[in-house]
Amino acid sequence: MIQYTLKCAGGHAFDSWFQSADAYEKLHAAGMVACAVCGGADVTKAIMAPRVSAARSRADSAPATSAPATSGQGALTAPASPAEQAIRLLREKIESSSEYVGMSFADEARAIHEGSAPERAIHGEAKPAEARRLIEEGVPVAPLPFLPHRKSN
């Protein structure tokens, strides 16, 4: 296992574990590495210092403890800015008050618009061409500023 410090185009820094350096490269090339904060796919490795521990004597066998990050840089428990906090709250609201329909979003949105499916709030995924067709057909849709949880690292 290898841990990388990553950063996205939005300036978010976060850590992620990979099975190997090759595994990271394959996932990154396939577009499967996304920002843990905003979901952006434009992610690169950040400069990081190697973790090298000094040799310890047998008498000093107490486990080393690392202090938690106090600067907030890379912390995944709390958003680093008011904008990130607003996106997190929006995500929570959307996920709690609508149904996730996955990749069948375009078909489901169209069926609701035509009246052949029950009226309800939905969210999901659509290819750009499908989303464009929905807009051209007058189906009310809007892109969300985050990716589904299953695509987060």
Rank of each mutant, 00 (worst) to 15 (best):
residue 5 T to R: 13
residue 63 P to R: 11
residue 10 G to N: 11
residue 16 S to H: 03
residue 131 A to W: 07
residue 60 D to N: 10
residue 128 P to F: 08
residue 34 A to G: 06
residue 124 G to W: 09
residue 89 L to R: 10
residue 20 S to T: 00
residue 140 P to H: 05
residue 7 K to W: 09
residue 94 I to Q: 05
residue 127 K to Y: 15
residue 64 A to E: 12
residue 133 R to H: 13
residue 14 F to G: 03
residue 115 G to P: 00
residue 39 G to A: 01
residue 118 P to C: 06
residue 47 I to K: 15
residue 8 C to N: 02
residue 22 D to R: 02
residue 93 K to Q: 15
residue 59 A to N: 15
residue 57 S to W: 06
residue 61 S to I: 06
residue 123 H to F: 12
residue 87 I to V: 11
residue 52 V to T: 12
residue 126 A to P: 07
residue 14 F to Q: 03
residue 48 M to Q: 13
residue 111 A to W: 05
residue 1 M to C: 09
residue 115 G to V: 01
residue 128 P to Q: 06
residue 62 A to F: 06
residue 103 M to R: 14
residue 39 G to L: 01
residue 73 Q to R: 15
residue 84 E to R: 13
residue 88 R to E: 14
residue 32 M to P: 01
residue 37 V to P: 05
residue 34 A to H: 10
residue 82 P to R: 06
residue 149 H to K: 13
residue 36 A to S: 10
residue 11 G to D: 01
residue 142 A to Y: 04
residue 153 N to A: 07
residue 57 S to I: 07
residue 82 P to A: 08
residue 94 I to M: 05
residue 23 A to Q: 08
residue 95 E to G: 05
residue 43 V to W: 08
residue 55 A to I: 09
residue 3 Q to G: 15
residue 143 P to Q: 04
residue 138 G to H: 03
residue 108 E to I: 04
residue 103 M to A: 14
residue 148 P to F: 05
residue 120 R to D: 04
residue 57 S to T: 07
residue 15 D to Y: 07
residue 71 S to W: 14
residue 22 D to H: 05
residue 46 A to L: 09
residue 40 G to N: 04
residue 77 T to V: 07
residue 98 S to R: 12
residue 47 I to G: 07
residue 150 R to T: 03
residue 39 G to I: 01
residue 28 H to A: 04
residue 105 F to T: 02
residue 20 S to I: 00
residue 121 A to W: 07
residue 60 D to A: 14
residue 64 A to C: 10
residue 37 V to L: 12
residue 49 A to D: 08
residue 109 A to I: 06
residue 83 A to V: 12
residue 44 T to D: 13
residue 137 E to Y: 13
residue 39 G to C: 00
residue 68 P to N: 05
residue 82 P to C: 02
residue 56 R to M: 14
residue 104 S to T: 13
residue 118 P to F: 06
residue 51 R to P: 10
residue 135 I to S: 14
residue 99 E to P: 11
residue 9 A to N: 10
residue 71 S to C: 12
residue 150 R to A: 05
residue 107 D to R: 12
residue 148 P to V: 02
residue 24 Y to K: 00
residue 56 R to V: 02
residue 45 K to M: 09
residue 109 A to S: 00
residue 85 Q to W: 13
residue 141 V to N: 02
residue 4 Y to H: 07
residue 130 E to Y: 14
residue 91 R to F: 11
residue 21 A to K: 11
residue 120 R to A: 05
residue 20 S to W: 01
residue 62 A to H: 14
residue 66 S to Q: 14
residue 147 L to C: 00
residue 12 H to K: 03
residue 73 Q to H: 15
residue 101 V to Y: 08
residue 6 L to F: 00
residue 99 E to D: 12
residue 78 A to I: 10
residue 74 G to N: 07
residue 43 V to T: 02
residue 32 M to K: 15
residue 33 V to F: 03
residue 13 A to T: 04
residue 87 I to D: 01
residue 69 A to Q: 13
residue 75 A to L: 12
residue 69 A to R: 11
residue 152 S to I: 01
residue 132 R to W: 12
residue 64 A to Q: 15
residue 34 A to N: 10
residue 8 C to E: 02
residue 98 S to F: 09
residue 103 M to W: 14
residue 50 P to M: 07
residue 112 I to P: 01
residue 59 A to R: 14
residue 150 R to P: 03
residue 6 L to E: 02
residue 99 E to A: 06
residue 124 G to N: 02
residue 129 A to W: 08
residue 23 A to I: 02
residue 6 L to N: 06
residue 106 A to H: 07
residue 20 S to V: 00
